[in-house]
Design a protein around this nucleic acid. Structure first.
Lengths: 228, 228
DNA sequence: CCAAAAGTGTTTGTTATACACCCATGG
DNA sequence: CCATGGGTGTATAACAAACACTTTTGG
């Protein structure tokens, strides 16, 4: 996203303004969803949707701006964000030159933290409508990044509750990736990451064998990584 | 890099200007080197060095600005650049708020393309002096990125001449990575990338068996990558 | 006893690593 | 003939992928 509430008057600018956009994912209703907000900037964007974002303030870094806008517009705090890249196509904002640093984050399933009745919502990343600005592109890049990243990190921890079963975890992976996984192989792969700890309780109450519950433990820093 | 020739007057700005910085690598004299330029911005930077860079113009993308500044300041054309990330620490440029998009590229060994007697030079990435702005940080990030990337792409093609021997290639890898490699294993790994073609000639003239010469062929696009 | 999800091992193929010797040439 | 870098293969370990049955519970 790019505009805040006041329109961008390009006459006041040296040549560009800097914004951030945040692609905030969650997993809900069996789908990978992204947080979208109502964008209305006639005559360019009439009742479109776009990811939350806004300008960088003089006294904050891009990272700080990303956290701030996400908190202000979506009510999300304590989300780990990661920089994706910077989008600078000249006409990405038809109102003026705006360069945007894109971020990506993940929040827990379901409990949205969203104030009710705001013009923000999560929508499935499949079949997104045309979004404002270059946000389809930004979201696509974020999805690709997310899919790559969960293969070798514990990024899904952010979307799972404190305690979860292996089945929960597998569902998250399958929804994000969009294809089914073998549960034995997934278990092995996840276990080799060494970030999962059995918590010693089980979840009963369903019409099947109770599931062991797990929790994520701190990621170990991976020393210096030899690539060969 | 951040400043151009005119000083950045922050009063004229909405809140920031956008620059690009280019970390241009080459391999020379048995070392991984980075292109540095003289930076003199009293009272902040007195005869320092920094990577080439400059402001983004109103009518160009960040990528275009990177190519332009690299050509203008270093005389390099036809270099493939890749975006590394955006650096936005508030005080990274003590003269005002400047957010910079960092790029990375590789040029062939030796033939520098540099106009003689300019205040630009390649320096070894080890033991760099304190650079202007946050350029030590940017270079460090570029080095890490480069090391990671050569493990699974033919990026080193950019630093090798059209024709090269396997020994040449191995030397490049070892210099970039900073540790020795097994030549049989490297050969297998490179061959599985499928980007190398034997050219049918040999290089004789040295006091040892003549080396087969190779050339890089186009990279094949890797379809959709399943991560599991 | 049935349905539903949980849990578990083995086999096979692929990839990564470690390792040592002969080859062709120039001097 | 010797020094120099060029070129090659194999054995082992680690990892990825495919695959099916038993367990425990609620209803």
């Amino acid at each position: 996203m790019t505009g805040k509430n006041k329109p961008v008057s390009s006459r006041r600018l040296r040549f560009a303004v800097i914004a951030i956009d945040v692609v905030l994912f969650t997993v809900m209703d069996n789908a990978l969803k992204v947080l979208l907000m109502h964008v209305h900037r006639p005559p360019f964007f009439i009742h479109r949707l776009g990811v939350p974002g806004g300008l960088i303030d003089p006294k904050e870094t891009a990272d700080e701006a990303a956290y701030r806008h996400l908190a202000e517009k979506g009510g999300f705090n304590d989300v780990a964000l990661e920089q994706l890249g910077t989008f600078s196509a000249i006409d990405r904002d038809p109102r003026g030159r705006v360069v945007s640093v894109a971020y990506m984050g993940l929040v827990p399933q379901g409990k949205s933290g969203l104030p009710d009745d705001r013009d923000v919502c999560f929508q499935s990343v499949d079949n997104l409508p045309p979004l404002a600005y270059d946000h389809n592109r930004i979201v696509a890049s974020a999805v690709e990044h997310l899919r790559t990243k969960i293969a070798y990190t514990a990024a899904v921890a952010a979307v799972l509750p404190k305690l979860f079963s292996f089945g929960d975890l597998q569902r998250i992976y399958e929804i994000i990736l969009g294809y089914p996984l073998d549960k034995r192989n997934l278990r092995k792969k996840i276990m080799t990451l060494g970030m999962l700890k059995k918590v010693g309780k089980k979840r009963s109450g369903a019409a099947h064998r109770p599931a062991e519950l797990y929790t994520f433990v701190k990621q170990k820093n991976s020393a210096d990584k030899r690539v060969f």
